[in-house]
Design a protein around this nucleic acid. Sequence first.
DNA 1: CCATTAAGTAAATTCAGATTTACTTGCGGG
DNA 2: CCCGCAAGTAAATCTGAATTTACTTAATGG
Lengths: 186, 186
Amino acid sequence: MEDSVRRRNPERTRQSILSAAQEIFSRRPYAEASLKEITAKAGANPALVSRYFGSKEKLFEAALEASLDAGPLMPASRESFGEQVVSAFLSPDRGRVNPLSMLIFSTAEAGLQSMALRLLQDRIVVPLSAWLGEDDAETRAARVMMVASGFFIYRSLLPLASMTGPLDPATRQWLANCFQSAIDNG
Amino acid sequence: MEDSVRRRNPERTRQSILSAAQEIFSRRPYAEASLKEITAKAGANPALVSRYFGSKEKLFEAALEASLDAGPLMPASRESFGEQVVSAFLSPDRGRVNPLSMLIFSTAEAGLQSMALRLLQDRIVVPLSAWLGEDDAETRAARVMMVASGFFIYRSLLPLASMTGPLDPATRQWLANCFQSAIDNG
DNA sequence: CCATTAAGTAAATTCAGATTTACTTGCGGG
DNA sequence: CCCGCAAGTAAATCTGAATTTACTTAATGG
């Protein structure tokens, strides 16, 4: 098993590149996440990206897809939906991998937009809609994404003072209401 | 006056570059908006960017600043705030210049983030807070930005089917409520 | 009108990162 | 044991864009 670390293992290599990509692409904008940095973190050679994934864009796609699969974020009860989502956002164990971050970053690369939109639709909007189970469920799911993304941006990417750190109770309440009313009838 | 078109006029040149930059930077992510394209649209030479603005980043800053000054978006009445904001978003004459777009794009360039944050704070959050006139006004202003940005993203950048085109009345109402409750007491 | 400075241009330079290439090393089957 | 392919590497290539440079052309003030 000591050996197995150094032993060749394409699947392991592929995985370690993918994992590194998820982390780096979550942290840095696409244009600033170099394959050199990603492969260095993975302990691999930049040329292997081409072998295993085809291109940087394809690697990004695989990374986004993988992290969307990881965190399904499907809520428990419909009544406390708003509060659940807010709690999830504020939970301290928010991993180094962040699909929402990648989603926002893919906004800034023409070549990624349609792919990101497709993944967003298939992996988030559709499942969430199914869970909601109404005619206009997709509209409601879209509303949820809007608030989540806006919150994420001003909490992490352009960190406005009032949105960073512990949230003031009024804002927390307001957010929960937004999420809740996004899916409620009326 | 025929002459004056061809006559040298540094101020005019500077302005035309700035205007072109506002348009292009509103339309394309920073990394994909080349100085070549911008100066071509302005009918100027790429080297002049260096002369008049110093660098691409400085040009972006100037462009963002200029477009923030242009559209003050200060609302009329506090009671109909939510509806006003939604209407503004949906109004057909949304120009080619879009500060919100630039703000989102600057999210994806480490070198732009702090600058964008500062401008956002000074040109939007502070004025809007002043208009609101309460202790926690900045928090409320931040909430408004969140919803506006989320809406913009899924309407324009990652256009979800249910958010493009004419909005369904329920969503329109929900949005107005979000904006309104963002600034209301309670 | 000339000389000096500012404005503008075309082409050279730099640079960094993705992708390719040509090569080396390890591994598993025959 | 060794052949052949798969995995991995280092370095070369390509590309596209920002920035610099060296130069040309216009304006301006004396």
